[in-house]
Design a protein around this nucleic acid. Structure first.
Lengths: 235, 235
DNA sequence: AAATTTAACTTGTACGTACAAGCTGTTGGC
DNA sequence: GCCAACAGCTTGTACGTACAAGTTAAATTT
């Protein structure tokens, strides 16, 4: 199973960007240069660049070239920035449940897309603390179909998304969220070390990725009393 | 100036979708059919469909066709677009306080930027209801300096942002937010018609605008029990 | 009747070509 | 020196072709 050409070129360029060979503001090799370097046609070169475009790595300028841009990290709420950047410093992460392959949990079944209902899914659960204070419970799951090689990898910088990007070349390209203020139930209250029936922020997220049939589902339970959840968006 | 072919095809299909000729779940004409109908090549037909794909109108299924999907509204409530678009239709808006020029309210002073502390500010407060159910209290204020001509205008489509854009040519170019789950206090509980100490979602927003010294501050108090707050973001 | 093969569709990838249109530095002419 | 024209790059649009691969239903075999 040999890799598709445009995927290979995309991955090559993405690595170069992530390693800093091409920094923000730099121009990538032109389409014709890519053609020569990889022995491909311009159609294929353009397709590779289109991938980087829709993943938010570059912008194309007519008559000039493809320019590396600051990847938009502040997607929606808590998204790609990840917890550490959203809340600030001094964050500890504790695995409540390391990644395991499981059957469906009926409590989340309604949120799942149809194609994800058929397969097993990877699940992991973490507790995020600021200093010694537990602040957020994070449950994540995703179908086994699109990522069968996924293993209990050690996450790069404790970031699942960074790991996805750098080990699997999968990018988050969007998110859909629902926010609710709720009373903490017994389980959540215990883990977050708060009174039962304290108000907590419950966030349900679906992350759309650059792999069309991979959707990542997260359920977040946040104690916002000391540490409100932050979010920035700029065009 | 004649329209580009793939744009023309895209627009044709988009209109058909918006008018309901193709509903959610329907398949658009195949690429080859589009070629015949519009006298174009498959490259061009695919480009038109790619546009619809990245605008969120369709999804493509290998071997089957292009399927119309529920359109995702990019940038939901918490970002730029405003309440009506985020929650859907059937939204009523009641002014609790029409726009008035006021002195600073100390309760919000901490959130204000320094340059805004010196001036008077416009303030207005609204209650958003879905059907007959009050769902969100919205308090807005902004400095009088940048918008001295602001008056008690009737908002276009009940949208403050649309009014800003169309009457003053001011665009929202970013936002910074803080989210908290809190107990409803007496005042909020009364307006939202809920029990005191119910959990509510409190969102503090600063909107950055295309006018450099105009920042809009909002405090939102949401009853998320029936209507969770939604938010979508796609690159 | 049931299982398998086949044919006819669909989209996906990749090849190659041509010209339009935007950007930039060089080259002439004034 | 200044400005216009040009040449040589860039990306954008659009043409055409070929085959791979997924889907489905009809035809064939078992």
């Amino acid at each position: 199973m040999t890799e598709l050409k445009y995927i290979a070129v995309r991955n090559f360029l993405k690595e170069q960007i992530q390693q800093g060979t091409f920094g923000v503001g730099d121009f990538l090799p032109s389409e014709n240069e890519l053609c020569r370097k990889f022995s491909i046609t311009r159609t294929t070169a353009r397709k590779a660049l289109d991938e980087l475009l829709k993943e938010g790595f570059i912008e194309k300028k007519h008559g000039k070239g493809s320019c590396v841009i600051e990847r938009r990290k502040s997607l929606g709420l808590l998204t790609v920035k990840g917890f550490s950047e959203a809340v600030g410093k001094n964050v500890k992460t504790i695995f409540i449940q390391k990644p395991t392959l499981q059957k469906l949990n009926s409590s989340i079944i309604t949120a799942l897309k149809d194609e994800d209902k058929k397969s097993d899914y990877w699940f992991f659960e973490r507790l995020r603390c600021v200093g010694e204070t537990p602040v957020m419970i994070e449950k994540n799951w995703f179908s086994n179909i699109s990522l069968p090689k996924f293993k209990d990898v050690s996450f790069i910088d404790n970031s699942f998304f960074k790991t996805l990007s750098q080990k699997y070349f999968i990018e988050i390209i969007g998110s859909s969220q629902e926010l609710r203020a709720e009373f903490a139930n017994k389980e959540v209250a215990k883990i977050l070390q708060i009174e039962i029936h304290s108000p907590i922020l419950h966030i349900s997220v679906q992350f759309k990725t650059s792999v069309s049939n991979l959707t990542i589902y997260s359920e977040l339970y946040c104690n916002t009393k000391k540490f409100p959840i932050g979010n920035n968006y700029y065009i």
